[in-house]
Simulated scan of single mutants.
Amino acid sequence: MKTLILAAEGEAINPVLPHTSEIILGLVAFLLLLFIMKKFVAPRFETLYAERAAKIEGGIEKAEQAQAHAQELLEQYKAQLAEARAEAARIRDDARIEGEQIISELRAKAQEESARIVAQGQTQLETQRAQIVAELRGELGKLAVDLADRVVGESLEDEVRRRGTVDRFLAELDGASAPATK
């Protein structure tokens, strides 16, 4: 009603301008809200912000440390891998050299064994040849004596005569065959 009375007195009420009491009450409420925000809310936000920033920075530091550690491990791995490759190459070279030595030793042993077998074979052949020649000389001598017995008509039973005749005949035979083989 008071507004009506004032309106009746001739003062015009401006609907855009608030009343003074509303302005004072709004200003007090704003200052009270500002005080509460500065006293309680802003410090809480600051601590949460600082904690979060510290966590992020700590996480970045941890990530950088982990990355540095991973890089060190990678370098160690690469060094070990290079060392293992060098060791493998050295082992391969040693094995190849050892293999070549074994092959050359086996070749030398095989050649020695071959030479021994050939020499043994030649010795055996010479022995057999000498044995066969002796057998053939005896047989040839007997045949020659029998033939001479028939041709000459006299007996060559005397051992000394027979041996002399056979030896002479074989010497002539050897003499005749020696120029033919050369």
Rank of each mutant, 00 (worst) to 15 (best):
A7Q: 10
I24G: 00
A12H: 13
T20S: 08
E9I: 08
E11D: 10
L25Y: 07
V28P: 00
L34D: 12
A8I: 05
L25K: 06
I23F: 06
I24S: 02
H19C: 03
L32M: 14
L25D: 01
F30Y: 08
I36S: 06
F35G: 12
I23R: 03
L33E: 11
L32W: 14
L25E: 09
L31K: 06
A7K: 07
F30D: 11
E22L: 03
A8R: 10
E9W: 09
L31T: 02
H19Y: 06
A12Y: 10
A8C: 08
L17S: 05
L17V: 08
G26L: 15
I36V: 10
P18D: 05
V28E: 07
H19L: 03
V28C: 12
V16I: 09
L34F: 15
L27K: 11
A7F: 13
I36E: 04
T20K: 02
L17H: 06
V16D: 01
L6E: 05
L31A: 15
A12Q: 10
H19E: 02
L33C: 11
L31N: 06
H19Q: 07
A8M: 13
V28G: 00
L32S: 14
L31Q: 05
G26T: 09
G26C: 07
L32K: 10
F35T: 12
E22A: 03
L27M: 12
N14Y: 09
L32F: 12
F30H: 09
L33N: 05
L17M: 04
L31S: 07
G10E: 06
I13S: 01
I13V: 09
S21G: 01
F35V: 10
L32P: 09
S21I: 05
L32R: 04
S21L: 01
P18V: 06
P18E: 09
F30A: 12
A7D: 03
A12C: 10
L33P: 00
A7V: 04
G26H: 15
I36C: 03
V16P: 00
N14T: 04
A29P: 04
L32N: 14
I24W: 07
L6F: 03
A8V: 11
L34Q: 15
L33Y: 14
E11Q: 14
G10H: 11
I24C: 00
I36K: 12
G26M: 14
M37K: 11
V28R: 05
V28W: 04
L25Q: 08
F30S: 06
P18Y: 08
E9T: 13
F30K: 11
L33W: 15
N14E: 03
F30L: 14
L32I: 12
L17T: 06
G10N: 07
P18Q: 05
L34P: 00
V28H: 09
P15E: 03
P15D: 01
E11Y: 14
E11T: 13
T20G: 03
S21P: 00
P15N: 01
P18N: 07
A7C: 02
M37C: 10
M37S: 14
G26V: 10
S21A: 04
E9C: 08
I23C: 03
A29D: 12
I36P: 00
P15Q: 01
